[in-house]
Design a protein around this nucleic acid. Sequence first.
DNA 1: GACGGCGGCG
DNA 2: CGCCGCCGTC
Lengths: 261, 261
Amino acid sequence: MSIFKVASFNVNSVKTRLPILERWLGEDPVDVLCLQETKVQDPDFPVSAFRDLGYHVAFRGMKSYNGVAVASREEPDEVAFGFGDGEEPDDGPRVARVRFGDLTVLNTYVPQGKALEHPDFLYKLRFFERVLALLERHCREADPVLWTGDLNVAPTDRDVTHPENKRDHVCFHRDVQRAFRDVLSWGLEDVYRKHRPGDGEFSFWDYRVRDSLARNIGWRIDHLLASPPLAERSVDAYAVRELRAQERPSDHTAVVGVFRR
Amino acid sequence: MSIFKVASFNVNSVKTRLPILERWLGEDPVDVLCLQETKVQDPDFPVSAFRDLGYHVAFRGMKSYNGVAVASREEPDEVAFGFGDGEEPDDGPRVARVRFGDLTVLNTYVPQGKALEHPDFLYKLRFFERVLALLERHCREADPVLWTGDLNVAPTDRDVTHPENKRDHVCFHRDVQRAFRDVLSWGLEDVYRKHRPGDGEFSFWDYRVRDSLARNIGWRIDHLLASPPLAERSVDAYAVRELRAQERPSDHTAVVGVFRR
DNA sequence: GACGGCGGCG
DNA sequence: CGCCGCCGTC
């Protein structure tokens, strides 16, 4: 059976994370890799490191913050950044849309939102609405579509360690969970949960919580959301915890979806 | 034959260098270790790391720059920082004087001097004069005395890789070499050269010169200078190159003097 | 509190 | 190139 793998990884600086990326992709290559928080301006993006690993790479970044990239073994047929909806900011360094034949991969780095009362939180809720509008504009539910990335939302109580004390957190508040569900209602299925329904399935472990990985105190905020024809072909999904356990790790790990071709 | 070892090591941040110091002193302990560029304020000095290695430690530092320390297996009978000559600045974070019985160890971090035309260069020349005055005030040539540290001077053509292009360098100019020799004339012998007279004997390899250690493009600016009764007991001296070859190294390595007790 | 980027420095 | 302090993020 021929399969392909699509992964999402918030790298928290792609340059700093190159050793980890090289080790990982050298051992267990994926076909499409969506990165967030690359934190690098386009002229400084480490293109050759990806080329040497056998990947094409499309990227849009800025100094210090944000930045998305999509690395892939095959060259995409179409690449676009930002919402392109006329609204400002267009958010190129947070939104990448890539097409391979009839498969669309949408890679987003959703704003964290800072605090419930902060303007950025309203912007975050608006961000989800714009993702939905983008799907409606560019995709069809009957085609294979994957929305992935660091979505900065833990959708259910099982997606955090202590849900009770997180009700007012910008990544767990019911308003952000509803905004997220509203996008899913377009016709997307959580294919990570399809294969890993249990407790303690996380993709982010805070640097500030000591031994968070060893104690498994984390959040599931990096997602793989597939349209029905793609979800139907999904055969596995997993988080690559080894990446979080290495020297100088990102605070996130990669999540990988495995699909029938 | 019972011996003792005295070392000098510009650590370029003592906190950053703890793993290297622990590995080194664990394997090949020295009796007295003079450090320069500790780059730490006194309240933050990692006293317990030295205690755990079996060392007493006296230190005087500041934020970001300079800072000297003397670690020793035996507790010193006397410790003093700075020139104490009434001149300002007294330079506590550059000058440590420590006495063990009749042995005086003078640990200095001589200012680099920035540029020949910079006021710091005159201050550097004055620094050597003040070292001489300090020796005259506190020591006798007939007693064992060791002047050591990062002296920021390569005394002869053999002490750098390309002497021709360094005549106007603040660590190689004839004025700084003369200022250094004037201190030696008090009655000190270069005990490193006594045992290692050859070419390519260095203690510093610039981070900015690629593969400087492997290509041995360096400077001998860290010194071991002994009064006659101590020089007479000197049996070996060497630079510990392994320290420069480790992960996250200082740009200097340690120089070690071995003496009969 | 532990990362990241940055500018200044040698 | 690798320190430092600084500041911003989460």
